[in-house]
Design a protein around this nucleic acid. Structure first.
Length: 422
DNA sequence: CGATAGTGTGTGATGACAAAATGTG
DNA sequence: CCACATTTTGTCATCACACACTATC
C-alpha cells in the first residue's frame, strides 16, 4: 500500500513528465530518453527514434481489474461486482476505474489441491438452458497430456480420430527429431502428467475435462476454432490455473457465428483421407497377393500408390542410352516384379536414391515402407514453395479484375448490376 | 449445365523477439 | 540499492482469408 503511494505514484509521475517532454507523435527525440533505443547508443544530440514511445506500463492487476470492471458492467449477472477488500489498484489514477474495482474472481470454493477436479466447477450467473456446463461434462475427452497417462487417444476422443494413415510420415519426421503435429508434447506435459497421476484417482471425473477445459455443449469446438468455454488465464500449467472460474463464451458473446466453416481446410482433409485410404488399400492388396503367391497380380503403381511417372523426363534421360534391360533378354520378356521395380525406380528420385532403391526388396513389408520413405524424403527435398501458376488465363483475368482493398469487386458492367439497374 | 477450383492483393490475426518496466529477495 | 526474474509492450514477419469472375471438370 505504501509503495503504491510513494514509489508507484512517483514512477507514474515521472512517466507523465516524459510523455510531455516527448509527445507520442514525435519521431524526433533530442533527449536521452530511456524509452528511445537509438538515442542511447548514439552520441548525436539529434537522434531519430524509429520506435513508438512506449506506453506506460500498467500496474500489477490493473489490466485484470479493468477487465473485471468492464465485464461486470456488461454482464453483471455473469460477473457480479464483488467489492474486494484487498483491491490491488487503489492507486490507479484512471478516472474510469478510480473507484474500487470489482474482483473478477467469483466466489469460488477454495478447493483442496488433491481433489480439485473431483468436483465440477461452480458456475455462477444465469444459464438459460440450465447447466450447459454440467450437461457437457458427460462427454469424455482427455487432453493430450492426459492421454499419455490414460492410454489410446482414439479410445477416448473418437470425434477427433483421424482415419488416415500418417504413420510413415510421422515416424519419418520423428526419426529426424521433427514432430510437426504433436511437438515434444510428451516432454512438455510431463509435469502435468505427473500432477494428474499423483492427484487423480477417479478417471471418470477426469474425463470430463478436455485439456484443462471443461467440455461443453454438443461440440468441443465452436467451429471457428474458439472454444465455447474458456478460462481467463494464459498458461494452464501454472500452479493455480485450476482455481480460476470457467467463463461460458456463449453467455459472453451470444452472437458468435458457429456455423462459419473453413471450406478449404475441409476439402483438404477430405482429399488427404481419400488418398490415404487408397494407399492403404493398394498396399494391403499388394502384400496379400505376394503372400498368396499370385505373381500375376501386379499392383497398379500410378493408381495405388498415387505415384506419377514423368514419362517425358524418362524418355529424354534414356534417349541417348542403350536398352535398360541388360544382356540378351528382350524387353518383352521382362515382366512381373521386374516391371514394377523398374517403374518405381524411374519415378521422381535422386541418383542416390535410385541406387538404393534398386537394392530394395519391394515385396517385403520393409521394402515397401522403405521405398515410400525414400519417396517422401525426395518429395520433401524437391518440393516447391514458390507459387506456381497453373492456369495463366486465370491470372490474366484476375489481373484485369477490379479490386477494392485487395478484394475483387464487381465489374461496372456486370450482368447482375445491369439487372439491378433495369 | 452446374459445381468448383483458381487467380491477386489488402488486411487482420498471430507468434517470435527484443526492450523496457516492474517485482522480489 | 542492487541483481536477477518476471511481466508488459512494441515491432516485425508470416499466414489465412475475403472478394468476383471464369476456366475447367
Amino acid at each position: 500500500m505504501s509503495s503504491c503511494l510513494s514509489g508507484g505514484t512517483g514512477r507514474a509521475y515521472r512517466l507523465d513528465l516524459e510523455i510531455i517532454k516527448s509527445p507520442s507523435n514525435s519521431w524526433i527525440s533530442n533527449s536521452s530518453s530511456p524509452s528511445s533505443t537509438l538515442s542511447e547508443s548514439s552520441n548525436s544530440p539529434l537522434t531519430i527514434s524509429t520506435r513508438k514511445p512506449r506506453t506506460p506500463r500498467k500496474r500489477p492487476n490493473q489490466t485484470y481489474n479493468e477487465a473485471a470492471a468492464i465485464l461486470s458492467t456488461a454482464h453483471p449477472k455473469i460477473f457480479p461486482c464483488n467489492k474486494s477488500t484487498k483491491s490491488y489498484d487503489s492507486c490507479d489514477k484512471n478516472p474510469i476505474f478510480s473507484e474500487p474495482t470489482s474482483d473478477l474472481l467469483m466466489p469460488f470454493q477454495e478447493l483442496d489441491t488433491s481433489g480439485f477436479l473431483l468436483h465440477p466447477p461452480i458456475v455462477h450467473g444465469s444459464n438459460p438452458k440450465g447447466s450447459n456446463l454440467m450437461n457437457l461434462l458427460e462427454k469424455p475427452c482427455l487432453s493430450p497430456g492426459e492421454i499419455t497417462s490414460y492410454g489410446n487417444f482414439s479410445e477416448v476422443c473418437d470425434d477427433f480420430q483421424e482415419d488416415f494413415d500418417a504413420e510413415s510420415i510421422l515416424d519419418e519426421e520423428i526419426e529426424e527429431g521433427i514432430d510437426s503435429i504433436l511437438g515434444n508434447f510428451k516432454i512438455e506435459n510431463e509435469s502435468k502428467d505427473d500432477f494428474l497421476s499423483n492427484n487423480m484417482s477417479n478417471s471418470m471425473e477426469m474425463s470430463n475435462f478436455c485439456y484443462g477445459y471443461p467440455v461443453g455443449f454438443e461440440g468441443f469446438d465452436s467451429g471457428n476454432g474458439m472454444r465455447k468455454e474458456l478460462r481467463g488465464i494464459r498458461n494452464v500449467d501454472e500452479g493455480d490455473w485450476w482455481r480460476f472460474p470457467c467463463v461460458n463464451m456463449i453467455d459472453i458473446n451470444p452472437k458468435i457465428d458457429v456455423k462459419k466453416k473453413k471450406k478449404k481446410k475441409k476439402v483438404e482433409i477430405k482429399n488427404l483421407k481419400e488418398n490415404s485410404i487408397s494407399i492403404n488399400r493398394d498396399m494391403k492388396k499388394n502384400l496379400d497377393s505376394k503372400s498368396s503367391g499370385d505373381q500375376e497380380c501386379i499392383p497398379k503403381v500410378n493408381a495405388g500408390l498415387l505415384l506419377k511417372l514423368n514419362y517425358d523426363d524418362v524418355l529424354n534421360a534414356w534417349s541417348d542410352k542403350d536398352s535398360p534391360f541388360s544382356g540378351d533378354a528382350p524387353a518383352a520378356e521382362v515382366a512381373g516384379n521386374d516391371v514394377q521395380e523398374i517403374s518405381i525406380l524411374l519415378l521422381e528420385t535422386t541418383d542416390q536414391d535410385l541406387g538404393r532403391l534398386a537394392q530394395i526388396d519391394l515385396f517385403s513389408e520393409n521394402g515397401v515402407r522403405e521405398a515410400s520413405v525414400l519417396r517422401y524424403k525426395e518429395k520433401r527435398r524437391t518440393r516447391l514453395f514458390s507459387k506456381k501458376i497453373r492456369y495463366q488465363v486465370r491470372k490474366v483475368n484476375a489481373d484485369r479484375r477490379p479490386r477494392m482493398k485487395g478484394r475483387f469487386v464487381r465489374t461496372p458492367n456486370s450482368p447482375d448490376i445491369d439487372e439491378e439497374r433495369s
